[in-house]
Amino acid sequence: MAFQEIVEQTVTGLGYELVDIERSAGGLLRITIDLPWSPGQELFVNVEDCEKVTRQLQFALEVEGTEYQRLEVSSPGLDRPLKSEKDFERFVGSQIDVTLKAPLGAAANGGVHANRKKFRGTLEKEGDVWQIVWSEAPAAKPGAKVSKNRASAPVQALGFRLDELKEARLAPVVDFKGRKPKTVGES
């Protein structure tokens, strides 16, 4: 049985989803797992989940005679990679970072630098087309008053197909204070 199949069968057999497999120099074997997702449900991998998968993988890999020095099983983390259509469906409305395989070139109509391949914005889906929406406006500094007369930067959108992406990840958004910004109409 192939190495990838062993890992995938073991992880899915325990009720988890295989996100990524990485083998690196020095014999490190890094496995990233997540809990299966369904709309309206958000569960997270914890340390006990990683321990359970680690124990089972150590046994399965030993039986198959797979060579490795160190096994590391972890959750996808804040900057989780988005690889499948299901991942994109799950994170619609989230901030993401995308890297295109090829620069935009003339397709940007002068709105974006022709050699640009990396974008950060909100993931949206319009029909069957994925798009990332962003604004080039600089973020206001905390405590600074922003003039109501200041013209807002235009919102830009880039439509893409998944096969045009080199890489896509969630943009890590960390809120240390635990407070959310007030929305319009909220006091």
Rank of each mutant, 00 (worst) to 15 (best):
Q56C: 10
Q56G: 13
L57P: 08
Q58P: 13
A60H: 05
A60S: 14
L61M: 08
L61T: 01
L61R: 09
L61G: 05
E62H: 14
E62G: 13
V63C: 04
V63P: 10
V63T: 15
E64V: 14
E64W: 02
G65R: 12
G65T: 06
G65P: 06
T66Q: 15
T66A: 14
E67C: 10
E67T: 14
E67Q: 14
Y68R: 06
Q69I: 06
R70D: 05
R70I: 00
L71C: 08
L71M: 11
E72A: 02
E72L: 06
E72H: 09
V73K: 11
V73Q: 11
S74T: 04
S74I: 01
S74C: 04
P76G: 09
P76A: 04
L78Y: 07
L78T: 10
L78E: 13
D79L: 11
D79A: 14
R80S: 00
R80E: 07
R80N: 00
R80Q: 05
P81T: 03
L82T: 00
K83N: 03
K83H: 13
K83F: 03
K83D: 01
K83M: 03
S84E: 12
E85H: 07
E85V: 01
D87S: 01
D87H: 03
D87A: 00
F88H: 00
F88C: 01
R90H: 01
R90P: 03
R90Q: 07
F91K: 09
F91S: 02
V92E: 07
V92Q: 09
V92W: 06
V92R: 14
G93N: 15
G93Q: 05
G93S: 10
G93T: 08
S94A: 12
S94T: 07
S94Y: 15
Q95F: 10
I96W: 07
I96S: 02
D97G: 04
D97N: 09
D97W: 15
D97P: 08
V98L: 09
V98W: 05
K101T: 10
K101H: 04
K101V: 06
A102M: 12
A102R: 12
P103W: 13
P103S: 02
L104R: 09
L104C: 10
G105S: 09
G105R: 13
A106V: 09
A106D: 15
A107L: 07
A108M: 02
G110Y: 04
G110R: 05
G110W: 07
G110N: 12
G111Q: 15
G111V: 12
G111L: 12
H113G: 12
H113K: 15
N115H: 14
N115S: 14
R116G: 00
R116W: 00
R116D: 11
K117Y: 05
K117V: 04
K117C: 07
K118D: 12
K118Y: 14
F119A: 01
F119V: 13
R120M: 05
R120P: 00
R120A: 05
G121R: 07
T122H: 11
T122I: 13
L123T: 10
L123G: 03
E124D: 04
E124T: 02
E124S: 04
K125G: 00
K125W: 02
K125Q: 08
E126W: 03
E126V: 12
E126F: 05
G127C: 04
G127P: 01
D128G: 07
V129C: 00
Q131F: 05
Q131E: 09
I132L: 13
V133I: 11
V133M: 08
W134G: 04
W134R: 03
W134Q: 03
